[in-house]
């Protein structure tokens, strides 16, 4: 144990320290912040964002980025609602097919995203941004600007049924987080993400099928976006073209603030969890101590810049666009 305070160590643990400091800060100002009820509320608002953040983490590990989440989540949520209504309106009956169907569809949408990026050879931030717009447009087209309501008690139990004080959806989100962790740490695909992000040339030379890994990464992200869509529907009881609105800013902020380096190769799903919790604690804490919520976007924006600055090893970067 030579020097604990190395740059690497500091970067690794800084997000967690920030999270703890924030929790301490808010609970000193208002003790109600530490209540179980408040944490349950926090978990409800964080669960869908966590799923989007986990999905996009895989992409950022590869050094790419996926900005399609808003459109993807909206479109998938709307399709899920229509499918559920068409199949009888309850997941207790025939409607249970709707859930795996939407997860599969999410993966397909993600794969299309990745395919466009890889085959047309255009930067992923632009191809995915464009696909996000397509998704939002598709959601408007399907709903005609209306709201699709779901009043299935069984499905809504994700929100209403509480276990140890937390709603079921928090556990579902945690289960999918574990799934993401297993994929990241114990599968060949997960290792290949890190290989591609660490250095694409090297990965290619070592026999990694880089293009396939990229498309699979986007497909995986799409899968997690569809989980986020499901949780959004469970949370709100409805779907419309703005169901996914604002998720882009929140999820990218979370992942970056959590310590996943934009250059790829560093970080993982646990960083995404810490990042989502930081963002959720800031949002929730500001309301609890009575600061108006409109400052959030500005604060988060500045936080992102600080996080990227801190996580960039400037000696290794020639220039940025």
């Amino acid at each position: 144990m030579q020097n604990v305070l190395t740059r690497d160590n500091l970067l690794k643990w800084a997000p967690l320290l920030v999270l703890l400091a924030l929790v301490l800060f808010f609970s000193v100002i208002n003790p109600n912040f530490l209540s179980l009820r408040n944490f349950a509320r926090l978990s409800i608002s964080a669960s869908p964002a966590l799923m989007v953040a986990v999905g996009v983490t895989f992409i950022i590990i590869m050094g790419s980025i996926d900005l399609s989440m808003e459109g993807a989540v909206s479109a998938l949520a709307v399709i899920f609602c229509y499918l559920l209504v068409w199949l009888g309106g309850s997941v207790a009956g025939l409607g249970c097919i709707a859930i795996p169907a939407i997860l599969l569809l999410g993966a397909i949408v993600g794969a299309i995203n990745g395919y466009i990026h890889v085959k047309l050879r255009i930067p992923s931030f632009m191809s995915s941004l464009a696909m996000g717009f397509v998704g939002t447009g598709a959601a408007v087209l399907m709903t005609g600007g209306n709201i699709v309501k779901i009043d299935d008690e069984v499905f809504r139990s994700l929100l209403t049924y509480r276990l140890l004080g937390f709603p079921l959806m928090a556990y579902v989100a945690f289960a999918f987080l574990l799934l993401g962790w297993v994929i990241q740490s114990y599968t060949r695909l997960g290792r290949n993400f890190y290989a591609v992000g660490g250095g694409e040339d090297l990965a290619h030379a070592s026999g990694v099928h880089v293009k396939r890994v990229r498309v699979l990464g986007f497909a995986l992200a799409g899968f997690f976006f569809s989980v986020a869509g499901l949780l959004q529907v469970a949370k709100l009881g409805q779907a419309e073209s703005v169901t996914g609105a604002n998720l882009m800013f929140i999820s990218i902020t979370s992942v970056v603030v959590g310590g996943v380096a934009l250059w790829g190769g560093i970080g993982g799903v646990w960083n995404a969890l810490v990042g989502v919790l930081i963002v959720a604690v800031i949002n929730n804490g500001m309301i609890v101590i009575g600061i108006p919520d409109f400052i959030q976007d500005g604060l988060l924006g500045l936080l992102v810049i600080v996080a990227v600055v801190l996580s960039t090893d400037r000696r290794s970067v020639a220039f940025v666009k």
């Binding site: 976007d297 924006g301 992102v304 600055v309």
Partner: peptide, 30 residues
Amino acid sequence: VTTRFFVPSFISTLAVGGVAFSVAQWLSGQ
């Protein structure tokens, strides 16, 4: 931010966009 801190422009402008949005909401009272 982009040139001095090596933050890619799509992130730095997204972040500044967030700041601008906050200012707009603050001044207009939403």
